[in-house]
Amino acid sequence: MIVTTARVVAADNGRTMVEPSNESGCGGCKSRSVCGVSGLGKYFSGNRKAIEVQCDASVTAGDELQLSMSEGDMLKAGLLAYLLPSVMALAGAGIASAYGWGDAGAVLGAAGGVAAGLLMGRLTGWVPHILAQRKNEYSSKGETP
């Protein structure tokens, strides 16, 4: 399971808007002062957006939730978001080159392939399952994330 903490922004009828906590993914790392990834995290940290998750617990704005997702869902999301458009871009460029449309045609074919791959990923209708629980529910059940 991939687990993170999020803060509730708004809650209504089982649908909860949450935004990620302010700590970076490598906030506990001992070598963050010399790490390039840590610097990128600080640079992009202002781009956090709230997402909607389903939460059956009664929560209010300001509460902290534990969000978890299975590794399989994360892999499938990555394949749909990155691999499918990349493969379609190569296919589009290859088809354009096969028809002899030159370099400009290959670029347009690749752009069309990326667009088709993103559209195909969107049309699958698949959404990863994110489990939202109050942050202290793990300790009350004796489980660890």
Rank of each mutant, 00 (worst) to 15 (best):
M1I: 09
M1N: 08
I2T: 02
V3H: 11
A6M: 04
A6H: 00
R7T: 07
V9M: 05
V9K: 04
A10V: 08
D12I: 08
R15P: 03
T16I: 08
V18G: 07
V18C: 08
E19D: 05
E19T: 14
N22T: 15
N22L: 14
N22S: 15
E23F: 14
G25K: 05
C26K: 11
C26G: 07
G27M: 13
K30Q: 12
S31V: 08
S31R: 12
R32M: 07
S33V: 12
V34D: 07
V34P: 02
C35V: 00
C35T: 03
S38P: 05
S38H: 10
G39W: 03
G41V: 11
K42Y: 10
K42Q: 15
Y43M: 15
S45K: 11
S45W: 03
G46F: 10
G46I: 14
K49N: 06
K49V: 10
K49T: 11
E52R: 14
V53L: 09
C55K: 11
D56S: 14
A57P: 12
G62N: 07
D63T: 07
E64R: 06
E64Y: 15
L65H: 13
L65P: 14
Q66F: 14
S68C: 03
S68V: 09
S68G: 08
M69K: 06
G72D: 10
D73A: 09
D73K: 01
M74P: 00
L75A: 05
L75P: 00
A77Q: 00
A77T: 06
L79W: 00
L80E: 03
L84Y: 01
V87W: 00
M88Q: 03
L90R: 04
A93K: 04
G94H: 07
I95H: 11
S97I: 05
S97G: 11
Y99G: 03
W101A: 08
W101C: 02
G102P: 00
D103P: 04
D103F: 04
V107P: 01
V107Y: 01
L108C: 00
A110I: 00
A110M: 01
A111M: 04
A111G: 06
G112K: 05
G112R: 02
G112F: 03
G117P: 02
G117W: 02
M120W: 02
M120I: 03
R122T: 02
R122E: 02
R122Q: 04
L123H: 01
T124E: 03
T124C: 04
T124Y: 01
W126T: 00
W126I: 06
W126N: 08
H129D: 15
H129S: 15
L131S: 15
A132R: 10
Q133G: 09
R134I: 07
R134Y: 07
K135G: 06
E137T: 13
E137H: 15
Y138W: 15
Y138D: 05
S139V: 12
S139Q: 13
G142D: 04
E143N: 12
E143P: 04
E143M: 14
T144G: 07
P145W: 15
